[in-house]
Amino acid sequence: MDVQRLRLIVQSIAFILLIYGGLFAIDLGNRLPTFACAYVPDNGGGCFLVGFQHMLSRPLPQFMGEQGIRLLKAIGIFALWAVVINKAWCGWICPFGLLQDLLTKLRTWLSIDLSRFSWIAHKRYKSVKYILLALLILIPLGIGNGLISRDWTAPFCQMCPARPILPLFQGDVSEFMIDFTSIPTMLLTGAAIILVGLMFTTAFVKRRFLCSYCPMLAFLSLFDKVGLFSLKKYGDLCTRCGNCFRACPMEIREIEEEKSIKNLVTQDCILCLRCVEACPENQALEARFAGFAFMKADAKAFLNRQHGSPAKPKPTPAQKKKNK
């Protein structure tokens, strides 16, 4: 089966579970490392970042006691999820990622060309997600210790573009708004709305544009080395044709250029496996789970995808006679 088709199916099922799961009494917990937005009225699971920000909004001495244990427990659950399927949360489960992928399909259907950032720009903007991650940790700590106004509570949730968008799938328009309570809330909710606009526009220019700046991806990348899900490259088999780089929605250059590093799950990788699918060299790339290679680059499969499965040659009249 085509892996990308399988991925779309898995993403759709995950979307239904996470957005409508609550309607069927499904609850996958509120420590999920994906944008299962807590603002969706009857969601089937909750995003880890919501609770994480609220848990950090406490005075520092409290972390020496019960609050610290609760925080460690939450991070432990998150880490467990992250270790098991690693960045596949982003590539295979994230509901917001699915929306971006669907917009990309729409772009393909409309025959609009992609644009690419220059390599320097790409490198420069890569750090944005780490800055956001640092802020979403520091701001709640500042709130808890009386240094920052409570209007900055859960800053990332206030500016997350998933918050206005995902509740719309349950007919809830209440989160698509600008909060005029104070200047910080106005700025943060305004930023969320601008990001929504950018998501729709940039989807026609670049694949998974917002994922490049997602602090959840930055958080997950802390567990890259210990994740059971991995992506291996055998540099000696690689011909540097560049197919993998062109197929990659996150435009990861290392996947084409690297020859020495075997594990290719980089900061931005979302484990969509498009690179493995696009690789024309036998076994140059392989996806592994707990050391077991479940998908390998295959020249034959690559050619089949490019040209369709080879049709059987029609028998000549001489052969027909022979068969008879």
């Binding site: 644009s115 206005p164 328009v173 698509f176 708004m177 709305i193 601008i194 606009g197 729709f200 026609f204």
Partner: peptide, 26 residues
């Protein structure tokens, strides 16, 4: 009430403006 501290129309306007502005820039 929510209507006293939020604005949906402003949000829709801002989203629309962003789409148009970013689209034009591209």
């Amino acid at each position: 009430s929510q209507l006293e501290w939020e604005s949906k129309s402003m949000a829709f306007l801002m989203a629309g403006f962003t789409v148009v502005a970013a689209g034009a820039a591209i």
